[in-house]
């Protein structure tokens, strides 16, 4: 039987989520794993925007910030359940992405990069400065999701770390599944067509502006959900989640692993999530090593790590 890339990706992800815990020496690794999956969700959104549609965003952390602060604020101010707050955050992100994306997506390349960067920085500035609402740079606590207690009631007793590991893993698999479905849908084909050449896509009747906007909105929702999950599992969030460095991190993870495929990007998310854990011993060198990794991969392995590795082993083009 020949596996399609879609089912292969989903099987690899499912195995990864299910099997790796057997090798965890301590409970701490569940936390790292959950963080990896959250980052994986965010970069899956970047794959849709950058990998499929060929558009750049240096401001997606802004949407993560909206998702995260929705979970922090809506339960307190409106008595919303944290899960509904995450949905609300995603909805706000989608609407905002639609409104901002309409004018911004006419731009290309560096201009688009800087416009999105400006948007992201404005969001993080609001989160930092509106102290009476967000409590500023010191951060704010986030209500408990409460799902773990529900599961306990059903006889499934998980530690906090285990719960978030499997929950985020499940969310990642769902997110990847949706993204892979999109890839093969008419929308996905339109996105890839306009990635190749906007003019060519337009001449064959693709509504370029509409599809770009769709990709932007969808990827914003991914970032928002990732932000919500991060806030909910940490039960605390600071405006750094919306910061410029977080935006750069998202794009870097995706491009590092290979922005052309969901699995590649998640691989990149894995590398950049694990790197600081490995480097804690050399905390002083962390920033230098991060910069160096970004440089070397981008200069020598332009398609990203995973495609380059696969090519090396199988010696074939996809």
């Amino acid at each position: 039987m020949r596996l399609t890339p879609k089912s292969a990706t989903l099987i690899v992800l499912a195995l990864l989520v299910a099997i790796t815990p057997f090798f965890f020496p301590s409970g701490y690794y569940y936390r790292v794993g959950a963080l990896l999956f959250v980052n994986g969700i965010a970069v899956t959104g970047i794959v849709i925007l950058t990998g499929y549609a060929g558009q750049i965003s240096l401001g997606h952390a802004g949407f993560a910030g909206i998702g995260a602060y929705a979970c922090a604020l809506a339960p307190v101010h409106w008595g919303l359940h944290p899960a509904l707050a995450a949905v609300l955050g995603a909805a706000i992100s989608a609407v905002l992405a639609y409104l901002v994306g309409r004018p911004i997506l006419r731009l290309k390349g560096y201009y688009l990069g800087v416009a999105t960067l400006g948007f992201g920085i404005l969001v993080s500035m609001v989160l930092n400065n509106e102290r009476q609402l967000t409590r500023g740079p010191d951060g704010i606590e986030v209500a408990d999701l409460g799902l773990r207690e529900v599961l306990k009631g059903w006889g499934l007793n998980l530690t906090n770390g285990e719960f978030w590991y499997f929950f985020c893993g499940l969310c990642l698999i769902i997110g990847a599944w949706l993204a892979l479905n999109l890839h093969n849908s008419p929308t996905g084909r339109a996105l890839r067509a306009l990635h190749g050449s906007e003019v060519a896509a337009r001449t064959v009747g693709v509504d370029v502006a509409r599809f770009k906007l769709q990709a932007f909105v969808i990827s914003a929702v991914y970032a928002s959900v990732a932000g919500s999950l991060l806030a909910l599992q940490n039960k605390f969030i600071t405006p750094d989640v919306a910061g410029f460095m977080h935006s750069v991190e998202m794009v870097t993870m995706a491009v590092l692993g290979g922005v052309g495929s969901v699995l590649g990007a998640i691989f990149g998310a894995g590398i950049l999530t694990l790197l600081p854990q490995v480097l804690t011993v050399f905390a002083e060198y962390e920033q230098m090593v991060l910069g160096l990794v970004m440089l070397l991969v981008m200069i020598f392995l332009r398609e990203g790590l995973l495609p380059s590795i696969l090519k090396k082993f199988w010696g074939k083009d996809e």
Binding site: V248, V251, V259, Y285, Q287, L290, G291, M294, M298, I299
Partner: peptide, 28 residues
């Protein structure tokens, strides 16, 4: 020079990578 002809995303990441690297080196 080695990255000549790379797509814009790659060039953005390369120069941001350089920026992060220089900052890391400067603090050391």
């Amino acid at each position: 020079e080695p990255a000549r002809g790379a797509p814009v995303v790659s060039l953005i990441i390369i120069t941001i990578g350089a920026s992060i690297f220089i900052q890391g080196a400067a603090q050391l």
